[in-house]
């Protein structure tokens, strides 16, 4: 992932993703976080602008406090429960999404398309898959029921015109196709990569570049994307990682297990 790293930078692509994603959160929100960059981002946000952010884990945890250096390997092990407000059955924590208590879902992605649909089930389609991936987990529930942030590497093979399989629905075929499919709430909100931060056009629901990382050109973002991107009227330049943000990440993940 170092190829997009500007010269002299002292942060990794994963750190860049975590920092940019953390800045998208608002204090007081309740966030469903996956393991890795999503959890780091949510915890980073708690340390800076969002001290009242509540994290939920799929394994059945409300409000855990992450112990620096002890990031959990999944959302289902005991490390997820440290200093939590409550542990509850998996089904009930997921039902909080359906009930409407969750402001943001935040996860990584293997493959995404123009309309923000995610594939984590099959590379090459379900009949004769080239790769059988692990599957949805809570991804489908989260993306069906709340607003989503996805953090992923910006590579052409990951940003495709049409995903091989819709595991977690974004805006499906664009425009009002999501609501018409029976999903009146939520939807793909932001995609954060090592090159850019993207949203989705209000009407067409096509992926739209809102900001680019410092030093990155439109051409570079487009070159690494498998479909024609839209660009906002005014594309911002993302603020580079601040020293205190990087320090917090180093403190949380001293062994660089999730930020290497």
């Amino acid at each position: 992932m170092t190829k997009h790293q500007p010269k002299g930078a002292t942060f990794t692509a994963s750190e860049l993703l975590a920092i940019n994603a953390a800045r998208l959160m608002t204090d007081g929100q309740t966030v469903f976080a996956g393991i890795g960059v999503p959890l780091l981002a949510a915890t980073l946000a708690q340390h800076h602008a969002c001290p009242h952010l509540t994290i939920l884990f799929e394994g059945g945890v409300i409000g855990p406090k992450i112990v620096p250096g002890e990031l959990p390997p999944s959302t289902n092990e005991q490390r997820c429960t440290r200093r939590a407000a409550m542990v509850l059955p998996i089904t009930d924590v997921l039902l909080l999404l359906q009930r409407g208590y969750v402001d943001l879902g935040f996860m990584g992605g293997a493959q995404i398309d123009r309309y923000g649909n995610l594939n984590s089930s099959f590379i090459g389609g379900p009949e004769n898959p080239k790769v059988r991936l692990p599957g949805t987990g809570g991804g489908n529930d989260i993306s069906s029921l709340t607003n989503m942030i996805v953090a992923m590497k910006h590579e052409k093979r990951r940003f495709v015109e049409k995903v091989d399989f819709i595991t977690s629905p974004g805006w499906i075929k664009g425009r009002d196709s999501r609501a018409k499919s029976g999903l009146p709430q939520g939807g793909m909100w932001r995609v954060v990569t090592d090159l850019a931060v993207m949203g989705f056009h209000e009407e067409t629901r096509e992926m739209t570049v809102l900001a680019m990382q410092a030093g990155v050109t439109r051409e570079k973002v487009q070159e690494n994307t498998g479909f024609a991107l839209r660009f906002a009227d005014k594309v911002e330049v993302a603020e580079p990682p601040r020293r205190e943000e990087l320090e917090t990440l180093h403190h949380l993940d001293p062994d660089r297990r999730f930020t290497a």
Partner: peptide, 19 residues
């Protein structure tokens, strides 16, 4: 319930998935 609609996860289940 209100998830799985619009996805291919539901299509893959064939007749076992109903709305």
């Amino acid at each position: 319930s209100r998830s799985m609609m619009g996805s291919d996860v539901s299509k893959e289940l064939g007749a076992d998935f109903k709305t």
